[in-house]
Simulated scan of single mutants.
Amino acid sequence: MRIFVTGATGYIGSAVVRELINAGHKVIGLTRSDIGVTILKEAGAEVQRGDLDDLDSIRRGTAEADA
């Protein structure tokens, strides 16, 4: 399953991303920073650039995901 995660590089979000990947899911993580891109790629997640104030970035992330 492809899962879109907002807050994917935060304290809780990063743990959720790891658990989802370890469970065999594909993760799309939302991040607004270059450091966040690096963190998500190293974790094995796909990256969606943007933030919660940018509805287009949220729409793109959710359109590519099952959950």
Rank of each mutant, 00 (worst) to 15 (best):
R2M: 07
R2I: 09
R2Q: 10
I3W: 07
I3M: 11
I3A: 14
I3R: 13
F4Q: 01
F4E: 02
V5G: 04
A8M: 07
A8Y: 14
A8V: 02
T9P: 13
T9F: 04
G10H: 08
G10N: 06
G10M: 06
Y11P: 04
Y11F: 14
Y11C: 00
Y11G: 02
I12L: 15
I12Y: 15
I12S: 12
G13H: 13
A15L: 12
V16F: 11
V16Q: 08
V16R: 04
V17C: 05
V17A: 09
R18C: 00
R18D: 11
E19H: 09
E19I: 01
E19A: 14
E19Q: 14
L20K: 08
L20G: 08
L20P: 12
I21T: 10
I21Q: 09
N22G: 08
N22Q: 13
A23N: 12
A23C: 04
G24K: 04
G24P: 08
G24C: 04
H25V: 01
H25C: 02
H25M: 06
K26L: 10
V27K: 06
V27Y: 01
V27M: 02
I28V: 12
I28R: 11
G29K: 00
G29W: 05
L30A: 09
L30R: 13
L30S: 07
L30T: 12
L30G: 11
T31Q: 09
R32G: 14
S33M: 05
S33I: 08
S33P: 13
S33A: 05
D34G: 10
D34S: 13
D34W: 03
G36E: 11
V37A: 07
T38V: 10
I39H: 12
I39T: 14
I39W: 08
I39Y: 09
L40E: 05
L40K: 01
E42Y: 09
E42T: 12
A43W: 06
G44W: 00
G44D: 02
G44T: 00
G44F: 00
G44L: 00
G44N: 08
A45F: 03
A45C: 09
V47I: 03
Q48G: 00
R49M: 15
R49N: 10
R49D: 01
G50Q: 11
G50V: 03
D51F: 10
L52G: 10
D54Q: 12
L55F: 08
D56C: 00
D56V: 03
R59M: 05
A63L: 03
A63V: 03
E64F: 07
E64M: 13
A65K: 06
A65M: 01
D66V: 09
D66Y: 11
D66I: 08
